[in-house]
Amino acid sequence: MNLSGEEMSEYSDCPSTREALESIFSKAPNEQILKYERQLADIKLLDPVLIIVPNQNWIHQYGWNVYHTVMDSFATDGLQNERRDENSRAIFHFASNTELYTVRRNVENRFPNAFMDQPSLQALTPNPRLYPIGTAWILTNVAKRKSEFGEDDKFFNSN
């Protein structure tokens, strides 16, 4: 997709991909931001990207090995001998929103403990899942090196 100068100016208020990554991974070292920036450089315009920032409370409860297993599921669900994360276990490229949310449902079915019970239901649940595995962000490249992004604060709520 080639954008005209007029279309490009439409996105001038959008943050750069680097600014988006620095906001999402506020504690990450520059090397990690550069690695993620390179990973996003090849994403097609308007393709959705899921970015997951680990929740330390969840990791303390279940451990890094379980965390990596769940992230590997996001990376490989529905694929054969491929990964949608370039082994980052943090940034997952999807061809469509439908694919992204289908994978989300599949991962929740396999790993329900990665998703938290809704706060309004936690008091009613015998062993509530209090923490989600991470924070989910959805990023879309809208122009060369320009992105629109936001936190999906309901992504890891159990359905």
Rank of each mutant, 00 (worst) to 15 (best):
S23N: 15
I24L: 10
I24C: 12
I24D: 14
I24Y: 09
F25L: 10
S26Q: 13
S26I: 08
K27I: 14
K27E: 15
A28H: 10
P29R: 10
N30I: 07
N30M: 13
Q32S: 13
Q32N: 12
L34Y: 14
L34P: 09
K35E: 12
Y36G: 10
Y36F: 11
E37I: 05
E37A: 12
R38K: 15
Q39S: 09
Q39C: 08
A41E: 14
I43Q: 05
K44P: 06
L45E: 06
L45S: 01
L46K: 14
D47Y: 05
D47N: 05
D47W: 07
L50G: 04
L50C: 01
L50P: 00
I51M: 04
I51H: 03
I52N: 02
I52A: 03
V53Y: 01
V53R: 00
P54M: 00
P54H: 02
N55A: 02
Q56H: 03
Q56G: 03
Q56D: 13
N57E: 06
N57L: 03
I59S: 05
H60V: 01
Q61M: 01
Y62H: 11
G63W: 12
G63N: 00
W64L: 13
W64Q: 12
W64C: 04
N65V: 04
V66S: 02
Y67L: 14
H68P: 04
H68V: 15
H68T: 15
H68M: 09
H68F: 13
T69Y: 02
T69V: 07
V70G: 05
D72C: 08
D72K: 10
D72P: 08
F74C: 04
F74W: 11
F74K: 01
A75S: 15
A75C: 09
T76G: 03
T76I: 10
T76F: 08
D77W: 09
D77F: 07
D77H: 12
D77Q: 14
G78L: 04
G78E: 04
G78W: 00
G78D: 01
L79H: 05
E82K: 13
R83G: 05
R84C: 05
D85Q: 06
D85S: 06
D85W: 09
D85F: 08
E86M: 14
E86K: 15
E86A: 11
E86W: 13
E86L: 08
N87P: 03
N87S: 15
S88L: 04
S88N: 05
I91W: 09
I91T: 08
H93L: 09
F94H: 03
A95G: 09
